[in-house]
Structures are given as C-alpha cells and as structure tokens.
C-alpha cells in the first residue's frame, strides 16, 4: 500500500452545516500531515471520520488499506487518538489511566503495568504517576493523553490540536515528544490552528476552510505562496512613512499594509530584515519598532482566500469544533 491514510471526497453534514465538503487527502507512511485551519473549519470532523468515530455522508477513507466504515475494528487496532480535549479520566491516577487502556486492549496485567511505567517515564510523568490526574497541569494532561494513545503502539497517530491552550514551554515539550514519535516511524495526522506548529512538525500541510481544502503543499511551498513571515516597521517620524512604505514594498512580496504609523508586509526571505535596516539607515530614518515574525493563520488566510479566518460565522455555518461535535 502506498498510503497510510487515504481519503476521497469526504462529506459530512451536521444539519445545515457542511462540516466536510469533499475532502481528499493522502498521508505517506512515516510522515506528518498537518491540517491547518481556524475553529470550525472541519479539522476535528475529518479526524473523527478517519478515527471511525463518525460515518461520512459521502466519500471513502481507508487506513493502511482498511476501510474506516466497513473495517472499523481493524482501523481501531492501528490508530491512536489524542483529542482536542484531553480525554483522561480525572478521577484516576496517571498509572491507572494507562493501565485501563492497556487492559482494554487485552494486554496482560504485568505487561500493561510495565508499559504504563515505560510511557510515564518517557513522558516525564513518573513523579506524578500515582496522583489523580485532576491535579495535573494542562501540559501534563496533554502528555498523559498522548501517552494513553500510545499504549497499544499504534502505527498511526491522530493529534487533534494537541497544543491548544498550552503555554509556550509546554508546547515546545510536546513538539519535542511528537518529533521523537515521528523519528520512531509513526505516521501522524495533526490538526492545528497555528501556522508555526504545522511548519515545525508537518512534512505536508493542507489548509482547510469551511470543510474544503483551499491549499496544500510542503511548508516551504506554502510559505512561498503566502509569505511565511510578516515584517513590521514603525518609523519614529510620521513624515518618514512614505519612505518606509516604499522600502518595505520593494523588498516584500506583497503590497505593504499601513495602519497608523505601522507598516506591515508578508515576506518569504528572512534576509530582507538586514536589507531593510541598511536602506532605512541610508535614508536616515529612525524606527521605534522593527520586527520579523511568523505570519499568523489569519494572515495566511487573508493571502489564500482574500478573507480573514472567521471564528464565528453569521450564517451559523461555522462555530467551534466543540459545537461541531455536539451538532450531530
């Protein structure tokens, strides 16, 4: 088989809402596909269909050649799922949560205990192993959630917004864990609202909006298309604004956007920063702010669709992934 995950024309409605509107995707074994999109874009629905939790209204999908509807039981033996909402039993300890999954998978008790110990050590939760998980921090919960999905050594892992709501340090730790999993040969389907997360982890990115794939490619291809970074310059003097705008416009790949005294533009090449500094210095312009930062999902969306990513839609066709779940 060529693809670990393969889907064609997936459609899923929740009442009037089209959560998935003909999604095709393919993930090669051992690679990471990042599904990038705002809340309510259909990312969670796609994962739930591929994890056999939802039946698609139309289209087909398979995991290692097993159909997600007809061979659901086989698919479940291959996958691990880490949901957007850390789905650990809060009243159980870390060890007990992992032991429960191990026992459900039919692993004999001594081996299940051994596996729980291993995972807790790998995820640096050994110290908290015998504490109820309701006392865990957000980052610890996510780590335990991820560990829970690995008990059965799945070859495929679905990570639905694994770092949403985590602080930067916990986020970086989780990224590191995911990288190690991928290095171990696991195929990963990752959903995220953050461009930098997809950029960090994914071999290929698919941008989805309103249940449709609006762009796909490697992170580099996507960056080349949209401008991966945003350059921001604020001159000290208002009269320098035209010079700054023209300098930025010359070096950036898009027309600069001027808000007040702040000039911003999408750029692809980080080398523009020193170039901007040189040119502004030559022109004798003093700046109070000069920054190069990763573009937000909003900025990418603006470039790709011409409209900003909407958090909520006036038609009620959008909403968070939570409402997506309960809308059924």
């Amino acid at each position: 088989m060529d693809h670990a995950i393969w889907a064609e024309g997936l459609v899923k409605h929740f009442g009037e809402t089209k959560a998935l509107d003909g999604v095709d995707l393919a993930v090669r074994p051992g690679t990471v596909l990042g599904l990038l999109g705002p809340n309510g874009a259909g990312k969670t629905t796609a994962v739930r269909v591929l994890a056999t939790l939802l039946r698609p209204d139309a289209g087909r999908a398979s995991v290692n050649g097993y159909d997600v509807v007809n061979d659901a039981h086989q698919v479940r033996q291959l996958i691990g799922l880490t949901g957007q909402y850390a789905s650990v039993d809060e009243t159980l300890t870390g060890t007990e949560n992992l032991l429960l999954i191990g026992r459900l998978l039919g692993i004999p008790k001594p081996q299940a205990k051994q596996r729980a110990r291993e995972l807790l050590a790998q995820f640096e939760l050994t110290d908290a192993a015998s504490r109820a998980t309701k006392t865990y921090s957000g980052g610890m919960r996510r780590r335990l959630d991820l560990a829970s999905s690995l008990v059965g050594r799945p070859t495929l892992l679905y990570l639905d917004e694994p770092t949403t709501g985590l602080d930067p340090r916990a986020r970086a730790e989780l990224w590191e864990l995911i990288r190690r999993l991928v290095a171990g040969g696991t195929t990963v389907l990752l959903t995220t609202q953050y461009l930098d997360e997809a950029d960090e982890l994914a071999d290929e990115i698919m941008v989805i909006d309103h249940g449709r794939v609006i762009a796909s490619g490697t992170p580099d291809e996507l960056k080349a298309k949209t401008g991966s970074q945003t350059l921001a310059v604020r001159p000290a003097e208002r009269e320098h604004l035209p010079i700054v705008t023209s300098v930025v416009g010359e070096l950036a790949c898009a027309t600069p956007d001027v808000k007040g005294r702040l000039v911003t533009a999408q750029v692809t090449d980080p080398k523009v920063l020193p170039a901007v500094v040189r040119k502004l210095d030559d022109a004798g312009v003093v700046v109070t702010e000069l920054a190069l930062r990763t573009s937000s999902l909003n900025e990418v969306f603006l470039t790709l669709t011409g409209h900003p990513a909407e958090e909520t839609d006036e038609n009620g066709t959008d909403g968070s992934d939570q409402t997506e779940r309960s809308a059924a």
């Binding site: 479940r76 998978l105 999905s149």
Partner: peptide, 8 residues
C-alpha cells in the same frame, strides 16, 4: 471518544 476509538 477515547474508548470508542479503541478496538473494543
């Protein structure tokens, strides 16, 4: 959801 994603 986690339980339903397991082969049980």
């Amino acid at each position: 959801d986690r339980l339903r994603s397991l082969p049980i």
